[in-house]
Computed example of a mutant assay.
Amino acid sequence: MTLSKHSLRGAMAAASLAVSPVWAQDDSDLQKKLANPIADIVTLPFQWTTNFNAGPFEKPQYTLNIQPVYPVKIGGGWSLINRAIVPLLSNPALLPGQDRKDGLGDITYEGFFAPTPSAGGWIWGVGPAMVMRTATDERLGAGKWSLGPAVVGIKESGPWTVGALATQVWSVAGDDNRPNVSAFTFQPIVSYRLDSKQSLGYVGIVTADWEQTRSSQRWTVPLGVSYSLLVRPEGFVPMNFVVGAGYNVIRPDNASDWFVRFQVNFVLPK
């Protein structure tokens, strides 16, 4: 008896689902891990954000962030959590006569050294952050290579997961004709599980550009809420869908006010 290529692929997929410890967990445990940016699971999120009324002509700005996470055991009860952010951007014109500019932005890498968490204790990690000069156009990136520290800490209690992820980077090389970079990001992590498959959370990242001399141009502070749904399609990997929206209550001139976000997160076998 012979198997078709289609049947063979299906059998291999089923086998991988059966042996992976991720699928042995119940939905509540998997939801906890999805809310934890340094959990011991391999994920591949695709995050689409529309920022409304951006730029001097108040046009939409679009971002598709591809954000793979791959943890590696390094011994002694420690792991290295590798995270990347690959942005595909569509930025509106800044000057009269300019066209919209589409392309790749500056890729960010974050590596968190994290100990095995104790039961009921804090989950934390610390390591380097690097922003690479990869933008395909000067309007899509800073034109600099930047380095700095990254730290994350969260606490799980009942249906709640609460914490934050923060980075600070400074430019170390790049185009001498472009402004220096001193950028801070602070991502609040707030998730409340409604049931085994659904949760509510905070959406948005607080940013500060320390190179701005005017405080009114330095900070962006969003307030937003998200809803997520975990699904397990038969014969396929678990998927987590997230929709959210928010408003930048503090923002520089020409920055977006409202934003909406959609994300699909694939949980992959390791």
Rank of each mutant, 00 (worst) to 15 (best):
187 Q>F: 14
83 R>P: 03
50 T>G: 12
147 L>G: 10
62 Y>D: 06
223 L>I: 14
33 K>N: 05
29 D>G: 03
104 L>Y: 04
252 P>S: 10
200 L>F: 10
107 I>D: 01
104 L>N: 03
114 A>W: 02
250 I>T: 13
207 T>W: 02
193 R>T: 04
170 W>I: 08
145 W>Q: 15
8 L>F: 12
216 S>M: 05
210 W>S: 09
116 T>K: 10
8 L>I: 12
132 M>T: 13
61 Q>C: 04
256 S>F: 13
125 G>C: 07
167 T>V: 11
265 N>T: 14
197 K>L: 11
46 F>A: 13
196 S>A: 15
16 S>H: 11
86 V>C: 03
52 F>K: 00
165 L>G: 11
198 Q>E: 07
183 A>Q: 14
140 L>A: 09
187 Q>I: 13
137 D>Q: 02
38 I>Q: 02
213 T>E: 14
144 K>H: 13
128 P>F: 11
96 P>I: 06
122 W>I: 09
97 G>L: 04
21 P>M: 10
242 V>H: 02
152 V>L: 15
51 N>Q: 14
50 T>Y: 06
254 N>S: 12
83 R>F: 10
147 L>H: 07
189 I>M: 08
6 H>L: 13
232 R>W: 06
194 L>I: 14
63 T>Y: 05
153 G>V: 11
138 E>M: 12
127 G>L: 07
1 M>H: 08
245 A>I: 12
53 N>V: 04
254 N>V: 11
174 G>F: 13
144 K>M: 15
134 T>G: 02
31 Q>H: 01
207 T>E: 05
143 G>V: 12
161 T>S: 05
191 S>D: 15
256 S>W: 05
28 S>W: 09
169 V>F: 10
114 A>D: 05
225 V>T: 13
101 K>N: 07
149 P>R: 04
120 G>P: 00
79 S>P: 03
22 V>T: 12
100 R>P: 03
164 A>P: 01
202 Y>L: 12
3 L>G: 05
137 D>W: 01
33 K>W: 00
98 Q>S: 02
213 T>Q: 14
172 V>E: 13
213 T>W: 08
236 F>T: 08
123 I>T: 14
126 V>C: 03
140 L>G: 02
3 L>H: 11
156 E>F: 06
190 V>G: 06
108 T>A: 10
151 V>D: 01
233 P>A: 04
39 A>T: 01
168 Q>C: 06
45 P>S: 07
99 D>N: 15
7 S>T: 13
90 S>R: 00
51 N>F: 15
139 R>Y: 10
114 A>N: 02
251 R>Y: 05
41 I>H: 00
214 R>A: 09
162 V>H: 00
49 T>R: 06
9 R>V: 08
117 P>N: 01
58 E>P: 00
69 V>G: 00
34 L>Y: 01
241 F>D: 02
74 I>S: 11
170 W>K: 09
87 P>C: 11
8 L>Y: 07
164 A>W: 06
122 W>A: 08
269 P>D: 09
155 K>W: 03
182 S>F: 12
